[in-house]
């Protein structure tokens, strides 16, 4: 009634058995599986290693003051994770290699070992919780501090499928806006109410500057206020190591300091509709003097 151990019996035709016969053999299978697991594990790590040497296949260049600490934590975590992955796969390959069936010999009867169990759990818990706690430093710096008072204020407005950036102008105050005033069709410079619905009657809004480019000075803290008109979007600048949802109905603050001049891409990272993948804008980090000049050139003519 019972079939023979191991189920190595094949019931397909002789010719095809010959082709796949080696796969069915226990000794061979154990060796092959061990090699297969090791190969996959080492291949995975090799893939990561090679990617680091290729341009565009690893983290983009970092240009914000918090990115050093963040990338450090990232490196630490990826190393620990890589080691854990490798050890587990090596161990799995090893037991598969070593403990294959041998004739009628029986396995070692054991229902477990509480001591080993507790030690393993404790070591894991220390490593994991340690990582969780050290990982909070950058987060606290980013999100639990207020932006300094002298920070450059920019309001980020997201909508399907573009970004508008608003600067408060010389008076340092944003003019009031209303959804009832939105005029999507007129994106001309200095348009009132324009796509953001800036109330022309509010004197604070007279000198507001609206742009489709985010231009910021290098080395100065920037305080963004994220808003969304229609659906949830996400302000994502890979080079800044920043990502934050812009949620309808919420004003979300985000502050950072960029320290390298240049032109970087802004993407939307939260699914927002059919052309989500096209919702791109540019971040231009300029020298402070160039930034001031740009802002003055853009200011609405009174």
């Amino acid at each position: 009634m019972l079939t023979k151990r191991g189920q190595t019996g094949s019931d397909i035709s002789f010719a095809s058995s010959l082709l796949i016969l080696p796969l069915a053999c226990g000794w061979f299978m154990g060796r092959l599986l061990a090699f297969g697991i090791w190969l996959v594990a080492l291949g995975t790590l090799a893939f990561f290693a090679v990617s680091q040497t290729r341009s565009g296949w690893w983290f983009p260049e970092a240009i914000s003051t918090h990115s050093g600490a963040l990338d450090g934590q990232m490196k630490l975590t990826l190393t620990i994770v890589g080691i854990a992955f490798l050890l587990a796969q090596l161990a799995l390959g090893y037991v598969v290699w070593r403990f294959r069936a041998r004739g009628a010999e029986r396995a070692h009867y054991s229902e477990g070992n509480t001591k080993v169990e507790i030690i393993c759990a404790a070591v894991t818990a220390v490593v994991f919780i340690g990582l969780a706690i050290t990982g909070q430093r950058v987060w606290i710096g980013l999100h639990l501090n207020q932006a300094p008072a002298e920070a450059v204020q920019v309001e980020v407005n997201a909508q399907q499928f573009l970004w508008y950036f608003r600067y408060p102008g010389a008076d340092g105050r944003f003019g009031s806006t209303s959804p009832k005033l939105y005029n999507e069709a007129d994106t001309s410079s200095g348009a009132r109410p324009g796509p953001l619905g800036i109330d022309a009657k509010d004197p604070a809004g007279k000198d507001d500057v609206v742009s489709q480019l985010l231009v910021i000075p290098a080395g100065r803290p920037i305080n963004l206020t994220l808003r969304a008109k229609d659906v949830t979007h996400d302000f994502y600048v890979p080079a800044l190591r920043l990502k934050q949802d812009a949620v309808p109905g919420l004003k979300i603050n985000l502050h950072f300091t960029a320290n390298k001049e240049g032109r970087y891409e802004i993407a939307c990272a939260e699914l927002c509709g059919q052309l989500h993948h096209q919702m791109r804008a540019y971040l231009e980090v300029k020298a402070p003097a160039d930034y001031e000049k740009w802002l003055q050139d853009r200011a609405p003519k009174q």
Partner: peptide, 9 residues
């Protein structure tokens, strides 16, 4: 005449 802003694309 008002100039269109189209820097996004």
């Amino acid at each position: 005449p008002r100039k269109m802003e189209m820097e996004n694309d």
